[in-house]
């Protein structure tokens, strides 16, 4: 389809520069429950451009439509208004977009290798090539020894590394991650963040990483998209000025980190307080 014929919009002016790898333009989405409850506006007029080789985090309180936005980026969900373009085309689920879910979603009846191969079965690779590729990516996440094990034999962190290998194996241009480390314990979580950074330094591309952890967003990202809820919309887009690589040093103590963290915390706290019940957070007028 001829997307160059797209009418000039507010973002149209930038067209003769290199097009963004991922473009979200004026996207809205309202869910209308069938059981007669009030319709729920998950996203309202969201626009965002992501250039290639950029790590973007989407940060915000629950209910801000983070996950909805992510599902639109791989075509699992279609927007009501506006458009999502990936390399100039509407996204379709497939090998060009990797997806990592919070719950690891491994097939219990397949071996670890078989689970990674699942991501390759729509790529047209031969059986031998799929096997070779799966083993290569399992080696990359340090799980070669477990290739013939079953998911129930692995710990949570290991399962998520399998899911990461499954998403990376088709070598997608965009990797979408939906709170991938939220169900891991604190230590495993930090290890996985470093692991992800290490992998990303080796082979860049666009990563869109949804999280509700301020620290995680800062440590990982080039840019942070801060969203607010009811309805979900973008509050602010911030650049993270921390040097890379970040996986071999502790960035948590750097001044830039501390300042950005403080700023983001204040923003999110204000959002949460504004939507909370009065008195819930113990202001002066709370009884007793």
């Amino acid at each position: 389809m001829a997307y160059d014929a797209r009418p000039e919009g507010p973002l149209g002016g930038a067209r003769d520069v290199a097009p963004p790898a991922l473009r979200v333009a004026g996207v809205s989405k309202t869910f209308r429950p069938r059981d007669g409850r009030d319709p729920f506006t998950a996203l309202s007029d969201v626009s965002l451009d992501v250039s290639d080789n950029t790590f973007v985090s989407i940060l915000g309180p629950s209910g801000c439509g983070k996950t909805t936005l992510l599902r639109m980026m791989n075509g699992l969900l279609a927007p009501d208004n506006g458009e999502v373009l990936l390399g100039g085309k509407p996204p379709r689920p497939g090998p060009d977009v990797g997806f990592v879910f919070q719950s690891f979603r491994l097939l219990p009846w397949r071996t670890i290798r078989g689970n990674v191969e699942l991501g390759l079965e729509e790529t047209g690779l031969s059986r031998a090539e799929r096997r070779e590729r799966a083993l290569r990516y399992l080696a990359l996440v340090g799980l070669s020894r477990f290739a013939e094990s079953y998911p129930h034999e692995l710990s949570g962190g290991m399962k998520q590394r399998v899911a990461l290998a499954r998403a990376l194996a088709p070598e997608p241009s965009v990797l979408l991650m939906d709170e991938p480390f939220a169900s891991l314990d604190a230590q495993t979580r930090e290890l996985m963040q470093m692991e992800l950074l290490r992998l990303w330094e080796r082979r860049r591309g666009v990563v869109v990483f949804v999280t509700h952890s301020v620290d995680e967003a800062i440590v990982l990202s080039d840019r942070i998209v801060l969203m607010r809820s009811h309805p979900g919309r973008i509050a602010e887009v911030l650049d993270v000025d921390l040097p890379r690589p970040r996986w071999d040093t502790d960035v948590h103590t750097r001044r830039e980190f501390v300042e950005l963290r403080h700023y983001l915390w204040e923003q999110i706290k204000a959002m949460v307080l504004a939507s909370a019940e009065p008195g819930l957070f113990g202001s002066g007028d709370a009884p007793g």
Partner: peptide, 20 residues
């Protein structure tokens, strides 16, 4: 959840039925 995961890899209805 597994069905959605398979769909995200590009699997069609028939493949999802057979594999999941």
């Amino acid at each position: 959840e597994l069905v959605e995961m398979a769909r995200s890899t590009g699997a069609g209805d028939l493949a999802i039925f057979r594999k999941i």
